[in-house]
């Protein structure tokens, strides 16, 4: 447990420090890189919580795609080495950010975070790490799940949930992605009257 505590504190310092850096560092490109560091730290947190699949997907999507998108946007902007230009929205932004921080801290502190009893925790671990393995009956019996509980555990895998209980959000997200892709293509298409077209 000591090892996990040390790792937790290191990751927390990294995440909070990098997040502060994103906001405070004047050079926009470095801020984008620090954002990538925040994403990696969050992936570390997921690993600490035994959710390896989510950690890897976090790195793949956030660091591998979203951070690159942000860096592309930063590169296409001029004069990024000197930070934000002065504008008139600084005071309202401070007020709004403080309110948001107060709300989040209150919610995080006042919630009753339950810790599962040990055997339920094991089952949750199994489901989360077995999210991408076929959870066969033998595997479950080996890991100590009683026979009558097996169907329920089998159906709690991430893939089964996505295709079973949560299929509507899943398909809605894919339609949204399709719309975004078509929109991007429409934006960069040469106009129909041009010679290249």
């Amino acid at each position: 447990m000591l090892f996990q505590d040390i790792v937790f504190w290191i990751l927390s310092v990294m995440a909070v420090g990098a997040a502060l850096g994103v906001v405070l560092v004047p050079d926009l490109f470095r801020a984008a890189l620090l954002l990538a560091v925040v994403f990696v730290a969050v992936a570390g947190f997921f690993i600490l919580l035994s959710a390896e699949f989510l950690a890897v997907v976090q790195v793949l999507i956030y660091v591998g795609a979203i951070a690159i998108l942000i860096i592309f946007a930063v590169m296409l902007t001029r004069d990024v080495k000197h930070g934000n230009l002065p504008n008139r929205l600084q005071i309202p932004a401070v007020v709004f950010a403080t309110l948001l921080l107060a709300t989040l801290v209150t919610v995080a502190v006042d919630t009753e975070w339950n810790f599962l009893p040990a055997e339920q925790q094991e089952r949750v671990d199994l489901v989360q790490t077995g999210a991408v393995t076929t959870l066969t009956g033998d595997l479950l019996t080996e890991s100590g799940v009683a026979v009558e509980d097996q169907p329920e555990v089998q159906k709690a895998g991430l893939a089964d949930l996505l295709i079973g209980d949560f299929v509507l959000p899943f398909e809605a997200v894919s339609v949204l992605l399709l719309a975004a892709l078509i929109g991007a293509l429409a934006l960069v298409r040469p106009s129909p009257g041009s010679r290249r077209g």
Binding site: A36, V56, A67, V132
Partner: peptide, 20 residues
């Protein structure tokens, strides 16, 4: 790792940031 293949893909995508 239980998610070895996905790990390999995730690590490959870090290369793009390094090139940038």
């Amino acid at each position: 790792l239980n998610v070895g293949v996905l790990y390999v893909l995730a690590v490959t995508s870090i290369t793009s940031i390094a090139i940038f």
